[in-house]
Amino acid sequence: MSTVDTIEHQISDSDFDHFTESLEKWSGIVISRSKKYLVAHRLEDLMAENGCQTLRQLVAKAGEIRHALLRKKIVDAMTTNETSWFRDVYPFDTLKRKLFRKYEELNGDAPIRIWSAACSTGQEPYGISISFQQYLSLESKHNSSGIEIIATDISPTALAAARMGVYDNLSMSRGCKASFREMYFTTDKNNVSTVRPEIKSFVNFKPLNLMDSYQSLGIFDVIFLRYVLIYFSDEAKKDIIHRISRRLKPGGALFLGSTESLVRHSDEFEMVKDGAGLYYQRKELLAG
């Protein structure tokens, strides 16, 4: 029996429930009992490093004030960093075809501000930056107010990779066209690609737990909150969306994942169907 199998076998339902309650308190992430093996696999090394024989011991240690770093490591280990380039395609097409022009006209000399929440290893914010470059080229624009992309994630590991902007061939094969790779990346003899500086220059990465305050980020024209709400409870979803609405300008656009919806979670947005997909537009006036 492997170490992971042993750990999973030793985790009682009560210990697992104690762990999931603590994880939700620390990060908002909700995990079902069917994920015991996943938890055992992802926390095996942390348990060994901290001399913990059981999951409850690890949680107890992480709960101590002096072990804040351990809490962050646990949350980091439990974060899913599944992503790809230009995921679902239509949000990026909508930006190029419609929204970049709209917000440039509304903002005047001020840059378009976009927040990529839960940006993972950087494909989404860099994809937005690439889309802006394509928009400028398609519109033959030589003078632009520019764009500012704030990209946040709870995972220090994911953010470190995002800041590097270096991707292996497998990562690049997931959604990035060969023509994009040639134009917006430099690629070495090992087929490892690095985002070009002119694409990186528009993106600012910051650590952020979506359960914390967003006020320091400022106000945005567009927010990408894609494939992250699925990890939160209904109560947390409503709270996050409510606070997200306060970070959008009136008429600002919110993109969710293609399988996600605001139904039952918010009445602060209007659905806008556009081409092959949809986005949510913040209402001009919000209650409260």
Rank of each mutant, 00 (worst) to 15 (best):
S2P: 00
S2I: 13
D15W: 15
D15N: 09
F16T: 10
S27W: 12
Y37R: 15
R42N: 07
L43W: 08
E49V: 04
E49T: 13
L55G: 01
L58W: 10
A60V: 00
E64W: 07
R66Y: 10
L69W: 02
A77V: 01
M78N: 06
W85N: 05
R87I: 03
P91D: 08
P91W: 13
F92Q: 04
K96E: 14
R97S: 11
L99S: 10
L99E: 10
R101W: 08
G108R: 06
A110K: 11
I114P: 00
W115P: 00
A117R: 04
G122N: 10
Q123K: 07
P125C: 06
L136M: 01
N143S: 13
S145I: 14
I150M: 06
A151H: 03
A158W: 09
A160S: 09
M164Y: 09
M164R: 13
G175V: 04
T186Q: 11
D188R: 06
V203W: 08
S213A: 14
Y214L: 14
L217H: 11
I219E: 09
L225S: 08
Y231I: 05
D234V: 14
E235K: 15
D239P: 00
R247V: 05
L248C: 11
K249L: 07
F255W: 04
F255E: 05
L256N: 04
E260S: 05
E260I: 10
R264K: 15
S266R: 05
E268N: 10
A276L: 02
Y280R: 05
R282C: 02
